[in-house]
Design a protein around this nucleic acid. Structure first.
Lengths: 222, 222
DNA sequence: GAGCTTGGCTACTGGGCATTAGCCATCTCA
DNA sequence: TGAGATGGCTAATGCCCAGTAGCCAAGCTC
């Protein structure tokens, strides 16, 4: 599945370049191919030759565009955490009520894990493949992200809006169910991303024992 | 971190055998060491030399006890799924009410993921490292396990005990929060296994919108 | 106590892989 | 138009690793 075929290369030495504008996209094409392969085969099982083949060049040619295989992984993983955190900050800022803040946070979390399932999947599976200092950077952001959920739930509990035995376990539950989405969701399945986000928002509010906001009662307590 | 050190071996060629009874335990010691290393470093990054070193022998000597590295992984993963399914069957058989069946199923799920966190962790991360037919066997059992939860929730909903928008999503949520436990739980932390199982049981009942069983109301609805 | 079994060991085989070296065709732009 | 930049390529380097071959010491059994 992975390595080059020994001798006998079929491609001509110098294929007519399809389009000139491709050059600028080369790097992002490599990143996309790497992401797809890391998700499908794992980082360690993906070779530079595989990534090259996915965009029609040889493995060593990749080094004209990227510094190393590890750099590709590190970029994916750090970028993922940055986007998750940015999404969470925006979600919390978009509402005043703690229930609504939690709902929006969960919806953003689910949306990301559905829309960027490969990034999220790789981001969760390959932490151990990261070398330092990239690993510490990713783990640090991951802690920040978790803390944001935990503190939101603690605040909701302090205000009497939520009722939980442990904010830590409630936050882990909610985060982990989102992470799971990245391993089974696929576009065109039973649910759209929006439906998914909404349903998980409901579930999260149940998990924290949210009291109804305004008029509409929680489905559990009507 | 992994390979042998070139030349210069310090151990004598024939160490006095510590105890005769060790021989019988050799195979399980190897399995345990492999499990620990697979969890810590990943299957691909763990070498036979690593596993051997963990029990004080050389890599090639392992082949006197096991057929291949892959066999070690396959045993761990198939065994894990068998135990999860057996635990679920026992949990469901232990109660008549569907709420109680769900609670016991979730408690068994959580207990397994806390007590056998390495097995569960490896079992979830290394599916792609399994070769056929082992991979299909594991995936088949995994589907069975998921279906058992889904059908239990569907039954509860049909009986009016649960209220969910999608039994599939509810079951995935519950399973995924348990899987998450295997990545953060450690003995001696904030919670005991029993406390964890009980709390997750509560959370699962909230997720499915369970109506109170008998006298005691759900904490959310009192 | 001799031969078989067990379970170590070292050396080796056959292969894979990230990365580097160095070549060269095309393109760009002065 | 020609020199440098760009981005391919093949070959080579250096390393790692699963698994095999074959040796050998200790224990067991008859």
């Amino acid at each position: 599945m992975s390595s080059a075929q020994g001798g006998a290369y079929e491609r001509p030495h110098r294929p007519a370049r399809p389009e000139a504008a491709l050059a600028a996209n080369r790097r992002s094409a490599i990143r996309q191919a790497a992401l797809r392969l890391f998700a499908a085969q794992g980082y360690r099982s993906t070779t530079m030759a595989d990534i090259g083949a996915a965009i029609g060049i040889r493995g060593p040619s990749l080094y004209k565009h990227v510094a190393s295989k590890h750099e590709l992984l590190a970029e994916i993983m750090i970028g993922t955490m940055e986007q998750l955190i940015a999404g969470n900050i925006a979600a919390v800022a978009g509402a005043d009520d703690v229930r609504e803040q939690l709902r929006r946070s969960v919806e953003a979390h689910i949306r990301y894990h559905a829309r960027h399932r490969l990034e999220a999947f790789v981001g969760n599976r390959e932490i151990g493949s990261l070398e330092q200092p990239a690993q510490d950077r990713v783990l640090g952001r991951r802690s920040d992200y978790e803390r944001r959920f935990r503190e939101l739930i603690e605040r909701g509990a302090a205000e009497g809006a939520f009722r939980v035995q442990s904010a830590r376990i409630a936050s882990y539950s909610i985060l982990d169910m989102g992470i799971g989405v990245s391993s089974w969701f696929h576009e065109g399945g039973e649910f759209t991303v929006d439906q998914l986000a909404y349903q998980y928002g409901d579930i999260a509010l149940r998990v924290v024992g949210a009291r109804p906001l305004g008029g509409s009662p929680d489905p559990l307590c009507e």
